[in-house]
Each structure stands twice: as structure tokens, then as C-alpha cells.
């Protein structure tokens, strides 16, 4: 009897204790299914940052918030304009399909996941003052819902931005529709397609796969004395003059071109590859006709290649309301 009494008292005390310890319900963010276009591979997502509706919404809010910057002067979207496929002059790389990328920035400074590049942006580029976000009336609650944290750190900011960036998917260009059998290319576009995907034009080795980039570093023979590029990261003289191959998706919207924005139009870019190659020590062997100055296209071929490049334009991406400023 004595034991029974003790047991009952203990259970009551334990239950009461539990009630006192439970301050808030457990936060369970809502899983978010990324809209992966047909023909695209699955995206590899870190296990410790699954994509959620709350995380994506928070990342989108942050992407457009100038308070991300230590001085409050700029947001991601200040330089990454949706109307320009999330790029801008003079040479801001576009935010397109970065969820499949493992190498970031023109000089390849960051390798790894979107979380890695976003942490770099938050801590080194913006030098975000987390106290500003922690003292905001709304952000702490949004971070709580997305990540279950009571105090915002740069880690959660980077994770939210990474989640939003994974939704910046472009896969509905005319070329995609052509590959899906939903439309045809004009004769001129088709000639450009053949030039792109044969060694006559040979764009495909560096601007490869569905993403129109190999995400690797190359010296594409821009200058006899090239900018150091990847060398500044590795210190290896063999990397001198190498830069990341940018995606050619939405290239029509991302002028000007090259790592220094030297070419204003696609026609100038094609002319460079046709006749303007410059020798230097680390030029990639894929720049095959270096001795002749380039691939030696005639006027019809140059125009065709430009026409094909414009089939990589995805107007839906530019007008996707789910990627737009949530405050507008």
C-alpha cells in the first residue's frame, strides 16, 4: 500500500513536471517540393537543411531585405535583378539553377553547397549584423517557424537564403520545349543548335548539360595578359586566367558578358569566339582554333548561333511571382 501511494504521487509529480517544462509546441516546418523541370536531374539537398515552405519564404524575404547588409545599403536583389535573370551589369553572375552548382563566383572562391556560398555572402560580403534581425519584430518569429531557433545566427540566415535560391529554377525556355517535343526550332535556330553542339562551334564542352555550364574553371583566351582569376584562390600558376563557365541559360537577359563585362552584346561575344582569341600560357585546349584566332564562323553561322542562344531565354523565369519581391 505504501509503495502504491508512493508510485501514484511520483506519477502525478512527473506529469506535473512535464507540463511545466513544455513551454511551446514543437516546430515542424512544412516540406516544400521543388518544381524540378522534366529532364533535369534531382537536386542534392543537404540533410541538415531540407527545403520547407517556411524556409523558402524566409529566404525570399531576406533576399530582398537591405538590412542583410551591415550598412543597410544593399540586398541580394540589389545586384541580382529578376528582370535580368537575377544578374546585372557590369558582371554579376546570374542566380539560375544554382541548386545544382558546386562552384561559385567568377574566381571559384567558394566550392561546396549553396549553404556554403550563402554563409560567405552573409558573413564576408554583407557582414550581416545579426542583432538587427534579432531585434526586428517579425524575423525572430519567422526563424523560429523555419528552423526552430530562438536566436538568429548567420548559419540560419545562410540556410534560409540557400532554400530560396534552390527555387530559382529556370527550365522552360524554347529550347526546353524543343527537347520535350513541344515546339520546333526555326531553320536559323537549328543551324545554331548544330553549331553549339558540334565541334564547329564547340560551345557544349564548357557550357554543358541541361544547365549550359560545366561549373568548372577555364581560361577562354580573352587576353594575352589575363586577369588572375582562379589563381587568386589556388595560388597555382596553372590556374592563372581561369574563370567559372557561366550558365548560358537566359543569356539574352544577362548582358554585358565575360567576367569583366567587356562585351555588350551576344554578337560581340560570338565574334570574339570566332576571331578574337588571344594566346596565353593557360588557355584551355578546348579553345581549339587558338592559332587561327577562333572558330572562324561566317556571317550566317554567327547569326544562327545568336539565334540559338536566344532560345535559352525563359520569360516565365523573369515573371515568376514566387521569386519576386514579397513586399511589392
Amino acid at each position: 500500500m505504501k509503495y502504491k501511494f508512493t508510485l501514484v504521487i511520483s506519477i502525478i509529480a512527473w506529469v506535473a513536471g512535464c507540463r511545466n517544462n513544455v513551454e511551446e509546441p514543437v516546430v515542424v516546418p512544412t516540406p516544400y517540393a521543388l518544381p524540378i523541370p522534366g529532364g533535369f536531374p534531382e537536386m542534392t539537398i543537404p540533410a541538415d537543411n531540407p527545403t520547407t515552405a517556411e524556409g523558402v519564404a524566409l529566404g525570399r524575404q531576406l533576399y530582398y531585405d537591405q538590412r542583410l547588409d551591415k550598412d543597410g545599403a544593399r540586398a541580394c536583389a540589389t545586384c541580382h535583378l529578376q528582370a535580368q535573370a537575377f544578374s546585372s551589369a557590369p558582371a554579376v553572375l546570374p542566380h539560375i539553377n544554382l541548386g545544382w552548382s558546386r562552384k561559385f563566383l567568377w574566381n571559384g572562391k567558394i566550392s561546396g553547397s549553396l549553404e556554403d556560398i550563402m554563409l560567405f555572402e552573409v558573413e564576408e560580403f554583407f557582414q550581416t549584423d545579426v542583432d538587427v534581425l534579432n531585434s526586428d519584430p517579425e524575423y525572430p518569429g519567422l526563424f523560429k517557424k523555419a528552423f526552430g531557433v530562438s536566436k538568429i545566427t548567420t548559419r540560419e540566415i545562410a540556410r534560409a537564403l540557400a532554400q530560396f535560391s534552390r527555387t530559382q529554377i529556370s527550365g522552360n525556355a524554347k529550347f526546353d520545349k524543343f527537347l520535350r517535343g513541344e515546339t520546333t526550332l526555326t531553320n536559323q535556330e537549328y543551324l545554331g543548335y548544330e553549331l553549339y553542339y558540334t565541334e564547329k562551334g564547340d560551345c557544349f564542352h564548357c557550357h554543358a548539360t541541361m544547365f549550359m555550364t560545366d561549373n568548372l574553371m577555364h581560361n577562354n583566351a580573352l587576353d594575352t595578359n589575363p586577369d588572375p582569376g582562379y589563381f587568386t584562390i589556388t595560388g597555382d600558376s596553372l590556374d592563372y586566367g581561369k574563370f567559372k563557365s557561366p550558365t548560358l541559360r537566359n543569356i539574352e537577359y544577362t548582358a554585358p558578358y565575360m567576367h569583366d563585362g567587356r562585351y555588350a552584346t551576344l554578337e560581340e561575344v560570338v565574334e570574339f569566339y570566332s576571331s578574337g582569341l588571344q594566346k596565353s600560357a593557360t588557355v584551355d585546349p578546348l579553345m581549339k582554333n587558338l592559332g587561327q584566332g577562333g572558330i572562324q564562323l561566317n556571317a550566317e553561322e554567327k547569326a544562327a548561333l545568336v539565334a540559338f542562344l536566344k532560345t535559352l531565354s525563359d520569360p516565365d523565369f523573369l515573371h515568376n511571382s514566387e521569386l519576386a519581391n514579397p513586399n511589392n
Binding site: 529532364g39 536531374p41 534531382e42 542534392t44 558546386r102 543548335y193 548544330e194 553542339y197 558540334t198 557544349f204 554543358a208 548539360t209 560545366d214 561549373n215 568548372l216 585546349p285 578546348l286
Partner: peptide, 29 residues
């Protein structure tokens, strides 16, 4: 399409030349 992730996917052999993948790439000067 059988290889969806790099580096294997970067061995693609374009459709206008028959499709599939490079067997090999050996490059130099």
C-alpha cells in the same frame, strides 16, 4: 541521360553527333 551528376554527366556526347557519352577525353598541347 543515364548519368545525371558530374563528373560523369560532363562526358556527354551531343545529340547532333549521335548522343550518349564520350568514351574518353585526353587533351594537351
Amino acid at each position: 541521360g543515364r548519368f545525371t551528376q558530374p563528373p560523369e554527366s560532363l562526358m556527354e556526347w551531343p545529340e547532333p553527333m549521335g548522343g550518349g557519352y564520350h568514351y574518353a577525353k585526353i587533351e594537351g598541347v
